[in-house]
């Protein structure tokens, strides 16, 4: 797949994602507390945590949808609050329960997002993306009639049509059947291998994290309580047989 974005695409020397003392509050409720995190280019990072731990808030900040209350968040060396334009040129985003314009076809939807990302030849980029994701059969159907799995595939297409450097996936497996989960896993691995995309993934599906991610971070009540590679994590907890057991142990120790 070629690169379609008009902005420069050189890999900056800065890490893919860098959070420093990142805080966020909704009114009096502190959702993120002094998060320090560094994710290098090429990593597939699994962000784990219970419901309400603050994972989605972190993604919302990193995708520039909300501004942090305090601290800094950078993507490819650019500050999400002060350099929004630079950040949004370099990221792709697939939210949980992705929704697109139901009256438009998959092609029209993805082409729309390609144009918003400044892709030079949106039509070509869309064709290449659908072909890459093996979902050209969906291109000319209206999104309103799609199942969750079909929506997810088109959702990934819109997230990568501009060939971002960092891809944010928020609970990407929610609502997918086992085949859909496997297809998604294979897609993430391919995107990382073929295009060198850094992937930041919020998820509860620990079995998938073990198969896909290179690094994990655990968020508990807004605090980052753990971050390391999958290999180092399994070495550190030799008594536990699965990532699920390790995660439960971490959560229990934190509480």
């Amino acid at each position: 797949m070629g690169n379609h974005v008009m902005t420069e695409t050189e890999q900056p020397s800065a890490p893919a994602i860098e959070l420093e003392a990142l805080c966020h509050s909704y009114g009096d409720t502190e959702v993120l507390r002094h998060i320090d995190l560094r994710i290098e280019h090429g990593e597939i990072f699994g962000f784990l945590g219970h419901n309400g731990a603050g994972k989605t808030t972190a993604v919302n900040i990193l995708t520039t949808l909300i501004a942090p209350t305090a601290g800094t968040a950078k993507v490819c060396g650019f500050d999400v609050a002060a350099q929004r334009h630079e950040v949004t040129s370099r990221i792709g985003y697939l939210p949980a329960d992705v929704r697109m314009y139901p009256h438009l076809t998959a092609r029209e939807n993805v082409e729309f997002f390609a144009k918003l990302s400044g892709v030079k030849k949106p039509s070509t980029a869309v064709d290449e993306t659908f072909e890459y994701l093996s979902c050209s059969d969906l291109a000319d159907k209206r999104v309103g009639s799609f199942s969750t799995g079909m929506r997810q595939r088109v959702g990934i297409a819109q997230a990568i049509v501009h060939r971002p450097q960092v891809l944010f996936l928020d609970e990407p497996t929610s609502g997918l059947d086992p085949v859909g989960v496997r297809q998604l896993r294979e897609t993430i691995i391919r995107l990382n291998a073929d295009l060198g995309m850094t992937v930041f993934m919020n998820t509860h599906l620990l079995s998938e994290v073990a198969k896909v991610c290179t690094t994990i971070g655990v968020l508990d009540h807004g605090e980052l309580i753990y971050k390391d590679t999958i290999a180092a994590t399994t070495e550190r907890f030799p008594d536990e047989t699965s990532l699920e057991d390790i995660y439960v142990r971490m959560e229990r120790s934190a509480s």
Binding site: T63, T64, L65, H85, T88, S89, I91, Y93, P95, V98, R99, M100, Y101, P102, F113, L116, S117, G118, Q158, F168
Partner: peptide, 15 residues
């Protein structure tokens, strides 16, 4: 009204 849900995708772009 559709952008209440699609807005997340729009505003994670350069616009």
């Amino acid at each position: 009204v559709d952008d209440e849900t699609v807005g997340r995708l729009i505003f994670s772009r350069r616009i």
